[in-house]
């Protein structure tokens, strides 16, 4: 079976600084995969590479078997990969409803249509309402996204990411800055919404990581030093030494 995401020997340098070196990563279809590592290890850069935000200096990235390294983000998105951002990245002047609806339009095949009325597209309306219901923001549908609370904006961020129905979902620190209760809510939300899809998540909160992930990869200095089930990662001495320390116990 082809992997959902396959990263082969990817390198990324900014000038003389090598951020990612010999990155190899394989995420199976339907798997929930967490990437952890200390600050500055290159987790967000890895996300940016896979989603096409930046191009690798060398190496190859495949999505469902197809080479995607070198493609633009929207081309990768159309092939079934959708990502969220660590810093909230929504359409601030548009309402919650419009935010989610925009993310639904391409997937429902309406593309750049200028001859259809968006308000009278039943499948778009239905899907947008469904997503809003899923992320518990139906009661805030007419509020401009810029006026939402931080936690609500994070939920909207997830909503926009999943709205297109991508088979591979990548979430970059979805619970960053959330309170304990908000985090629990968000994790339940992520678990429910990514059911049956492939999930790649970057997360600092270890309870989230070990509660959610089927497999974990540990990234240190732009290189994956270990990949395995939560138990294997817990027991791996290299990981303990490099990053986790006493935190896991």
């Amino acid at each position: 079976m082809t992997a959902a995401i396959q990263v082969n020997a990817v390198e990324k340098s900014f000038g003389n600084v090598q951020i990612i070196r010999d990155l190899n990563l394989s995420v199976a279809k339907g798997e929930r995969h967490a990437i952890i590592g200390p600050n500055g290890a290159g987790k967000s850069t890895t996300f940016n590479l896979i989603s096409g935000h930046i191009k690798p200096t060398s190496g190859e990235i495949r999505l469902n078997g197809e080479v995607t390294s070198g493609l633009r983000p929207f081309e990768i998105n159309r092939r079934g990969l959708s990502r969220s951002f660590q810093v909230t990245n929504v359409f601030a002047r548009m309402t919650v409803w419009e935010n989610v609806r925009c993310a639904v339009l391409w997937a429902t095949g309406h593309r750049y249509a200028f001859w259809k009325n968006t308000d009278s597209l039943p499948e778009v309306k239905q899907r947008t309402a469904q997503i809003l219901d899923d992320i518990h923001l139906s009661h805030r549908r007419d509020v401009p996204a810029g006026l939402l609370t931080y936690a609500e904006q994070r939920e909207l961020e997830i909503g926009i990411t999943i709205a297109g129905g991508a088979s591979v979902i990548m979430l970059d620190e979805p619970t960053a800055g959330m309170s304990h209760a908000e985090t629990e809510r968000a994790v339940a939300l992520i678990r429910r919404l990514t059911e049956g899809r492939t999930l790649v998540i970057v997360e600092h909160d270890m309870s989230v990581v070990f509660g959610l992930a089927d497999r974990i990869s540990v990234l240190v200095y732009g290189h994956i030093i270990a990949s395995g089930t939560p138990e294997e990662i817990r027991g791996n001495p290299k990981v303990k030494e490099a990053y986790l320390g006493e935190e896991v116990d």
Partner: peptide, 11 residues
């Protein structure tokens, strides 16, 4: 509002 994000919803 946000051309960067538009690229990640397929446009």
């Amino acid at each position: 509002d946000n051309p960067e994000r538009v690229e990640f919803i397929g446009y």
